[in-house]
Design a protein around this nucleic acid. Structure first.
Lengths: 319, 319
DNA sequence: TTGTAAGCGTTATCAG
DNA sequence: CTGATAACGCTTACAA
């Protein structure tokens, strides 16, 4: 593996001159520059990132640490982040599990976006306080060098449910996501608040975990009851898809017998029958905004507030 | 940000002793070791990865470079890789786009898995020849330090289609993926070979791109024809789901009027109506095998052949 | 415009 | 068992 030393030797210049030339510094004679590039080219030289980063005390890498690699939300947010980082000449490093912690501790990134509830608040605070700026997503956390960006799930659901009540529905059920999911809990709050305000005192509750499977099972339970709800709000679209599947199998018509809606506006929602009504956020845009913010932060600018996309209701056929 | 120097000073030992202690080398007095760890703890010290990697000439990172972050296949393969790497104390670094190239060139990884048709063969060969071991997925590429792992899409489809012909189908269509997708082309080869061998001389062909949308559009075209095919093989499950959607809308019964099947066995396939018949590969397992191989390679062992999972037919309701 | 040399934070060799 | 000290490959004052 060639080093800058090899390039310098081949070009017949000193190491520093080679470095200047390679880094496009102005103080280099054109002929020299040409020689250096020629040499680098022939040797197929690329600078060693570890050495460079060590010396410059910055890596140009932004970490995105997520809980798992699946899920349409993650992909969209990641895509948004990737796009914006690339535009600004930062590398994106996505990781998960123990690697996330290692990369963070060893400072192989200049900053990070955390989308992983498994990493504890106190660990995050520790990294941040040591100078690693962090943006946490879908989670509330304050502190030095820590920023958080949270979609207002509660108000979105609140507004939507209120609308549905005004449309005449008054008998609701909620299919939940995991209890430790911040966004699920927010959504449930919004749901309950709307019911409460409108004087609807009770609703059915089904525990799920954001999967199609869980939605399906909740659906089976609902079908089995004599007092079926008239409207089921699902904590995410996947649950809703499972529910639809169960209802379809039992020949319960949607929305005439049971109406329903989800959250997330996943791609698939338009391709099932009936088409899913849902609340959607532009996750790609969210990723872009978050990336913009972390770039500003790591480059020393101050960020007071991270812009976030507003949500939207996608009225389709399921209610 | 504390360095090992700070730790050494605080513990009252030399830098090298601190290093020995921290790295669990045997030649350190227990008391000294304790003092050092105590100091490290109090200072919240973690070694700087760039310095460590530079000195050790290895990073402990394995790169996984993919084309985009979406898609159920990617998620599963990534999950398998992550799991196995973590088990062996390697970090996983997933990236995409320009970052991939940067991380590769700057040697911020010890080796990489490439799942990205955008990176050219010649670039890959160059990195590999400079000492970076590479495993390319779903793509054939030979060379020093390059290994490739390819699912035998062709034989899987070939066997499946032959089976369908034996069951009596003789009028086929193929909904394609992108023309530059290696796996799509392999699948198409297998498809054609089976037809050819069984003396079926023609079939319909619809160009798609692996998306639900493209499958849906192909479906619309099929519906519009008077000579509708009796069996449609879709290059992947997402296309098949789009096709089903179009057929359902037009009240064409599956499989009685048109039978169909897909490829990939994505999670969703069991939750649509009719349940999708498909060819599936255990992608998580594939990821694990690939990870095992790259670990062996970067640790200097020789690998002759990368184990890969066999595929399986999931007979459900769509044919 | 170019070269010398210090130093980034580690590990590892070699003496002690 | 511990401590100097020389690298690792690069950037960057500073000098020439």
């Amino acid at each position: 593996m060639p080093t800058i030393k090899d390039v310098a030797k081949k070009a017949g210049v000193s190491i520093s001159t080679a470095s200047y030339a390679l880094n496009h510094l102005p103080n280099v004679h054109p002929d020299t520059r040409k020689k250096v590039f020629q040499a680098a080219q022939e040797l197929n030289y690329y600078p060693n990132g570890n050495a460079k980063n060590l010396k410059k005390r910055k890596t140009g890498n932004i970490g995105v640490f997520i809980y798992g690699f699946s899920g349409p939300i993650f992909s969209d947010v990641l895509e948004g982040i990737r796009h914006k980082l690339q535009e600004n000449n930062y590398n994106i490093i996505v990781s998960s599990g123990k690697s996330s912690t290692n990369l963070l501790q060893e400072r192989q990134v200049d900053g990070a976006v955390i989308f992983d509830a498994q990493i504890t608040d106190s660990d995050l605070s520790a990294y941040a306080s040591h100078g690693l700026p962090l943006i946490v997503l879908d989670r509330k956390l304050e502190g030095y060098n820590i920023y958080s960006s949270v979609i207002e799930n509660d108000v979105l659901v609140y507004n939507f449910i209120k609308q549905m009540i005004e449309r005449g529905y008054d008998d609701f059920a909620y299919i939940s996501g995991p209890l430790d999911a911040f966004n699920n809990n927010q959504r449930y709050e919004g749901f309950k608040k709307a019911l409460h305000e409108k004087g609807i005192l009770k609703h059915q509750y089904y525990q799920g975990d954001f999967t199609i499977q869980a939605g399906y099972e909740a659906g089976r339970k609902i079908i089995g009851r004599k007092d079926r709800p008239r409207f089921v709000f699902c904590a995410n679209d996947e649950s809703a898809i499972g529910l639809i599947q169960a209802l379809n199998e039992a020949n319960i018509t949607i929305p005439d017998e049971i109406a329903l809606a989800g959250f997330d506006n996943i791609y698939l929602g338009q391709y099932i029958k009936p088409k899913l009504t849902t609340i959607g956020i532009d996750h790609i845009l969210w990723g872009e905004k978050v990336a913009e913010a972390i770039i500003k932060i790591v480059s020393g600018q101050t960020v007071k507030k991270i812009e976030k996309p507003v949500g939207e209701i996608y009225e389709r056929e399921s209610c």
